[in-house]
Design a protein around this nucleic acid. Sequence first.
DNA 1: AATGGCATTATTGTATACAAAATACTTGAT
DNA 2: ATCAAGTATTTTGTATACAATAATGCCATT
Lengths: 213, 213
Amino acid sequence: MALNKTDKIVEELEHLILMGEFEAGERLDEIKLAERFGVSRTPIREVFQKLALSGLIEQLPRRGVFVKQPAPLELLEMFEVMSELEALCGRFAAERISEDALTLLSLENEKCKKAVEDNDEAAYYDHNKTFHQIIYKESGNSFLMQETIRLQRRLGPYRRIQLHVRGRMKQSMAEHIAIVQALVDGDANRAEAALRSHVAIQGQKFQHLLANL
Amino acid sequence: MALNKTDKIVEELEHLILMGEFEAGERLDEIKLAERFGVSRTPIREVFQKLALSGLIEQLPRRGVFVKQPAPLELLEMFEVMSELEALCGRFAAERISEDALTLLSLENEKCKKAVEDNDEAAYYDHNKTFHQIIYKESGNSFLMQETIRLQRRLGPYRRIQLHVRGRMKQSMAEHIAIVQALVDGDANRAEAALRSHVAIQGQKFQHLLANL
DNA sequence: AATGGCATTATTGTATACAAAATACTTGAT
DNA sequence: ATCAAGTATTTTGTATACAATAATGCCATT
């Protein structure tokens, strides 16, 4: 797929930023990054274009690019939208999901359960991500799926943080079961509500974490 | 704001594509575009990066970029998401909208009404756009506002087309009045429902137009 | 005549060179 | 010592040159 240097660097730099390699508001030096990745300025500038569109960095004309760690308020807004998008996916999926997908969903949920038992946060994070993506897909609207994945990706690191909250994984797991049941029953309203609160809680947990800083 | 050539060309080329200057699937020649806009290949390539992210073109590595006129199915999916985003904005706005904004909204609606009486589609399109954007803003979630504007922009040309349908402007106008009333009453459910169907109808009209081709 | 391989051409991807603008620094005057 | 103006330096924006890869066409062989 992505064979050119630009796309590879996009992923790497994105990862670095999300993992907090750079300070919030720090200016990204084209030349230093070019040296770091062993390329010229051109690919770096193309990387900037792409990252700017996904909101990770900010480009000020003639000033340079700056890493844009979203302000707490902005993050809460994003979580609010995320919970609504997930709720929407759930509502659609309840009426459109296939038997095969339901099986897959249960399977992924089992893996989540095992991760909880093993207290393996990384594994839980991954399986949880897949669990949700199955629902996006089964919304039957691939545009909705794409947009939701985009936001999921953007919020990824922040969703990860709140897994540290004691007991959160277990609670999350219980919510998953309710979501699956609603989908099995084909109950759109319940699926919608379950997913909305499941994600909204994450926003609240995150807010709580922020307050204790 | 946008002082550099790239950003200016982004808007121009975007406009050209949306207005159907290029065939669907047509390859965009970097060199020809560079000559056309009187710049070198570099800014054109930067323009491509940006347009690719907004989904207007498709970049195939080592193959070039192609204009991506969304398939009918994809458009319907986008309309479906749009109606849900607008409904969400309406639901939030019903509880958060300010008195000043309500006044502004009524004012803009009056302008729409005048445009209907004058049978002025261009004016109606513009005021309608502003009308909706006020609601996005009053959702009180600026991230949601930005995302909704992005999709509104993307669907712009297609929303414009269905204004040609006989009687559509008048019907649209009636729906606006219901929306404003729901917001004045602070009735979230009614505002949500009114906006959802208002936009969903556009998708249906559009589908109808497509079927008659 | 059809197909396979080689050479040619065109086009994208990358690097570098140059221009323009913003920032930092120095010098001089008050 | 402080401020201002002008200069130097850094950094972004753009153009062009070069490299790598894919597309095309031609010729030979079967």
